[in-house]
Design a protein around this nucleic acid. Sequence first.
RNA 1: GCGGAUGUAGCUCAGUUGGUUAGAGCGCUGGUUUGUGGUACCAGAUGUCGUGAGUUCGAGUCUCAUCUUCCGCCCCA
Length: 432
Amino acid sequence: MSAQLIKPATITGFPEYLPEERILEQQMLDKIRAVFESHGFCSIETPVVEKLEVLLSKSADTNKEMYVLGRLQAEEKEEAKMGLRYDLTVPFARYVAQHENDLVFPFKRYQMQPCWRGERPKLGRYRQFTQCDVDIVAREKLALEYDALIPAVVCEAWQKIGFENIVLQISNRKILAGFAEGLGIEKVGDTLRILDKLKKIGSDGVREMLTELNLSTKQIDACLKIAEINTTDLSFADKVHALGVQNETLELGLNELTECVKLYASLCKVPYCVDMSLVRGFDYYTGTTYEVQLVGTDFADSIGGGGRYDNLASTMTKSKLPGVGMSMGISRALGVALKLGLMTTGAKSPTEVLVVNVEGADKTKMLDVAEKLRMRGIKTEVYLEGGKLAKQLKYANDKKIPYVWFDIDNMVKNMETGDQQVADPNSWLPQK
RNA sequence: GCGGAUGUAGCUCAGUUGGUUAGAGCGCUGGUUUGUGGUACCAGAUGUCGUGAGUUCGAGUCUCAUCUUCCGCCCCA
């Protein structure tokens, strides 16, 4: 009779959590939300699906591992016209362009939703992952101060959810771009992309790739020199100037970054590191760029990043809508933290109190006790079916429920210490 | 998509030069303990050895194919 059982399995890269992991994630999301809202950011959500023309509007790079969507009933040759969002920034740009007349600027929003990329999964890299983005978008001109505010808010959020040991990497694309221009390099974009790999492939690898780009040895030497600049104070500007390249964009970038870093340091105690090789993959960034890195672990990838984008919506509206924002890679951070033992899971349910069914107990009274506790905000469940007390206590223990209530004599048992004492359901409070 | 590995109980893994009933720890179930869990002790259950074919008297062990997962590249949270 039994046909071959289907092996229950998720598709690699699409994470799903056990209750205790999900509780951790929920707690993180709640705390992040609280931080964002404390700074006045409002929440929006956008559809998981966008038109391909929107998704590809700012990076026509079809090399990006993007999921496209079609219907099973579609005509055979019908071309895919929609896809799953790749990040939250591009849909946000569309949102702002579309609803421009209904929004109040500068528009401050946060968004916590999943994104999809068809990449090869590995530790901290998934095909579906949740991002928490905060962005500020203005009309015409967005003050530079916001470039400092955004990382301060994001770093505060990271700290609130238990990532104390982090560093903010910061740079400004105008510096590297202006520098390259000043050197007479034509393929500025490609050059920056290669320099971004410095930490990963080393100076020899970068030199090799830049040589393939037909840069002169002199140009390559200069590029490597600037990309290797790495400071934890404002001295980066002097170090860049010492390389002797003159360029207007370069100067603008240095001034912006100096102002930004100064303000950031006064807003936030999370250490920063000015890293000239930081460019980031998305080509829509036009100025400040950030990455958040875990320190003291083997995990080298960033857990978040972002930057300033002055023209993100330019393909969708004639209005000028400059913005700056950052993204927190919450799935990655959680996955890595659990894997590296930076965090451990706790309870398997939100229950704070389990009302147990002692033999001879009055079920109405049990439910009444539970309701009294709930009315005061204490999360309470009732072991209605009864049975052996040992089994009920094991249930509480397995789920890591901190308190058990014996309604028959109004005793509360602390499951951690084993202490038991008489309590009044109208006034008792769990110790947090 | 390309390159390199991996695959044995729910989990982490052992399994000698192919040899008969495939193991450990953890977890799980039950008991010691008729109102008290978590510790301890005792007992027990569990596997088409990833899948399919081949070599062989005999395959978890060898060969081929296929799939899966993992690690790089690409890309990036």
